[in-house]
Nucleic acid binder design. Structure first.
Lengths: 245, 245
DNA sequence: CGGAATTTTGACGATGCTCAACAACGGTGG
DNA sequence: CCACCGTTGTTGAGCATCGTCAAAATTCCG
C-alpha cells in the first residue's frame, strides 16, 4: 500500500516552501484552507521523516505536538500495565495525529512503514485551528469518522470469533487498497506483520496464522508461503464468513 | 445513578421557556452559549420523554435529528447481521446524541432508564452549529473524549479476561457514581441488567454472573443476593485484579 | 399468591491461548 | 556463493477460559 515513498530533502526544514505541492494538500486538514491560509499554517509546520518501528508519541508523554501524516502508515496502540497491547487505530496519508484537549497522552503512536509527518507545535496549532472554522469542522468530521470506526471495531472485538475477524480484516484491506485482477479475484497486500494483525484483531499470532491457512484451505484466498500479499479469489465467500446471517 | 427523574409538563412543547432552568444548561453543549445565543437555539429544540427500553434511533435509519440528554441514560449498540450485540457507548445527562456527517445511522440508541431528551432537527442544528464556534469546539472536545473512551474499551475487549473486565467495570462505576461509606468501602449501584453488562463487556450473562460471585467470594465486593447495588469493600484489591502488573 | 423474568449455578464442550518445535526468509560475513 | 543466524511465520499438542445448554433459585410485578 504505502510503498516507502522517499521523502524529499526538505526534511526538517520549514514546510512553507513545499505546502502547495504537498502529497496531502488535498486530503489532509490542509485541504480546508485556501492558498493564503495555507501559507499561514505552513509557517508553523515542520516536515519530519520517521523510520518503521520508531515511536512518535509514548503513552504518558506530555502532548506537545500534533501532525498530519504525509505518507506512510502509523499504528495507535493502548496497553495494559502488564504489557498486553491492542492496536486501537491506524493512520494513513492525510490523517491527523495527536490527542487534542489532553495533556498527557494515553496512547502510543508508532510508525509501521517509513513515514513522513508534517508536525505542528501544540499551542500554535490550536491557535490556528481556532482561527480556521473550516479546518475545525473538518477535524470534527474526521474525529467522528474515527469514532464510528472505533465502534465498529468494538463490535468485532467483543462479538466476533477469530475466523470472522480475520476474514473481515482481509475484506477491509481489499476494499481499501485491493486491486482487481484479471481472471477475477483481488490482489491485496497486507502491510503489517502477523503480530501487528494479531494486535489489531485482539488475537494471537498463532490464531491469525491458523485462520489464514484455514481461509486458504477453503479456497477463499491464495498466498505464497511467506508472502505478505494475498489474492482474494472468492470475495463473496469471504463476506459470508465475515458477516454470517 | 440516574434515578428516574420525572420530566416536567413541558414535555413535547417548545424548549425555549425552560432552557434557562434546564438540568443540563451548564453541562451540555448549551453551556457554550450565552443566554442570548441559547434563546436562538431553544427555538429549534423540543423536549421529549422516553421510557426505558425504547429505541431512539435504529441502525439503518436516516439521520434526521440530534439531541442532548437532559436526564437518564442511553446505550449505543452495534450489531452483527445475525444479531449479536455490543454496547459501544453509554450516554448520560449532558451528552450529545447522534451521528453527524452520516446520512444513515450505523448504530442503535436505546433508553436504559426513563430519559429526557432535548432534540433538534438535523438541518437546523447544523446551521446553528456552524454559527456557534464555541459550541462546535465543545462538540469536538467531547467527540475526542468519546474516541479516547472507545479506545480504552477496545483494549479491554481485545486484551483483558472476564475477571479483569468485570472488576474494571465495577471500579469505573465506583469512580463515576459511587458514594463513600462509613466504615470504609464504596456504595455502587449497577444501573443495568446482567445482560446489558454482558453486552457492554463483550461477555455472556452467565460469565458476568460467575465473575461477580467470584469477586464476592474473594471478599472484594458485597451484594445482597438479587440486588443491583453492591458495596466495594476493597477498592485496592479490585484495582489489582482489573489492572495487574 | 402466582407466573414471568432475571439471575445463579452446574455440566460440558469449543474456541482460542500457551508452549514448543520446526520451516522459511533475509541479511551478514566468511 | 554458501553457511550461519536472527527474525518471522507455520504447525502441533495440551489446556484454560469462556460460551452453550439446562435447570434451579430468586426476584419482580400484577
Amino acid at each position: 500500500m504505502n510503498t516507502h515513498i522517499r521523502i524529499d530533502s526538505t526534511t526538517g526544514s520549514r514546510g512553507a516552501s513545499v505546502c502547495h505541492e504537498c502529497l496531502v494538500r488535498d486530503t489532509s486538514l490542509c485541504s480546508s484552507l485556501d492558498d493564503h491560509e495555507l501559507i499561514a499554517l505552513s509557517a508553523i509546520g515542520r516536515r519530519r521523516s520517521v523510520p518503521p518501528g520508531q515511536v512518535i508519541t509514548w503513552a504518558g508523554d506530555v502532548v506537545t505536538t500534533f501532525a498530519n501524516v504525509v505518507s506512510g502508515a502509523l499504528k495507535v496502540t493502548a496497553s495494559t500495565p502488564d504489557g498486553r497491547e491492542q492496536i486501537v487505530g491506524l493512520l494513513f496519508a492525510g490523517d491527523f495525529v495527536g490527542q487534542m484537549f489532553t495533556d498527557e497522552a494515553s496512547l502510543t503512536v508508532t510508525a509501521l512503514t517509513e513515514t513522513a509527518l508534517c508536525s505542528f507545535p501544540r499551542a500554535a496549532f490550536e491557535r490556528k485551528l481556532g482561527a480556521q472554522p473550516r479546518m475545525e469542522r473538518m477535524l470534527l468530521e474526521r474525529t467522528m469518522a474515527s469514532l464510528d470506526e472505533a465502534r465498529e471495531r468494538m463490535l468485532s472485538l467483543g462479538r466476533r470469533n477469530a475466523q470472522e475477524r480475520v476474514a473481515g480484516f482481509i475484506l477491509q484491506l481489499a476494499d481499501r487498497s485491493g486491486t482487481p485482477r484479471d481472471g477475477g479475484g483481488i490482489d491485496v497486500s497486507i502491510p503489517m506483520s502477523r503480530g501487528e494483525v494479531a494486535d489489531l484483531l485482539g488475537l494471537t499470532i498463532e490464531t491469525v496464522s491458523r485462520q489464514l491457512t484455514r481461509l486458504k484451505a477453503a479456497g477463499l484466498i491464495t498466498f505464497a508461503k511467506g508472502e505478505r500479499d494475498c489474492i482474494v479469489s472468492d470475495p463473496a465467500g469471504l463476506e459470508r464468513i465475515a458477516n454470517p446471517v
